[in-house]
């Protein structure tokens, strides 16, 4: 029963930290829309925290530039366990429009998020709609319950 309460509390109050790792800022705007009046994720007790130490879910947007890669790794380590990582948008998943046409590596990228830290949930789209971000968060909750 105690484990039940623990799981319940975990699913009922996930706090999100949003890490911006380069890119065009559009995913960030869509993520902000999730907490605005129309979609308001706080209905389900989900809060946007601006501190990785308070977070349960780490949402990463953008193709991870070389400059930000070490900071991103540090932010990942600062989130206490159990944690779930959500990669949000095509850039975070593959590099998106920042990949070169001729297949050579882009000089500014440290690769998509997957190369640096393990991803649990991926939300495709350029940018993903708030609905799909909410869907991604709900999938992340399922993973969080099992961790």
């Amino acid at each position: 029963m105690l484990i039940n309460i623990k799981r319940k509390a975990r699913v009922y109050s996930p706090w999100i930290f949003h890490a911006h790792a380069g890119g065009c800022n559009n995913c960030d705007i869509e993520l902000a829309a999730c907490f605005a009046p129309r979609y308001d994720l706080e209905r389900m007790g989900i809060q946007l925290r601006n501190n990785p130490r308070h977070a349960d879910i780490l949402i990463i947007t953008g193709p991870v530039t070389k400059q930000i890669s070490s900071s991103l790794r540090r932010i990942f380590d600062q989130v206490p366990n159990p944690k779930v990582v959500v990669a949000c948008g095509s850039c975070a998943l593959t590099g998106g429009v920042y990949n070169r046409d001729d297949g050579k590596p882009n000089y500014a990228l440290a690769g998509p998020v997957e190369k640096l830290i393990p991803i649990d949930v991926s939300v495709p789209g350029c940018p993903p709609k708030p609905e799909s971000i909410i869907d991604g968060v709900m999938l992340a909750l399922e993973k969080l319950k099992e961790k």
Binding site: A9, R10, Y12, S13
Partner: peptide, 10 residues
């Protein structure tokens, strides 16, 4: 719920 969750975390 927030408090219970935090008390079960690392």
């Amino acid at each position: 719920y927030d408090i219970i969750k935090l008390l079960c975390k690392e």
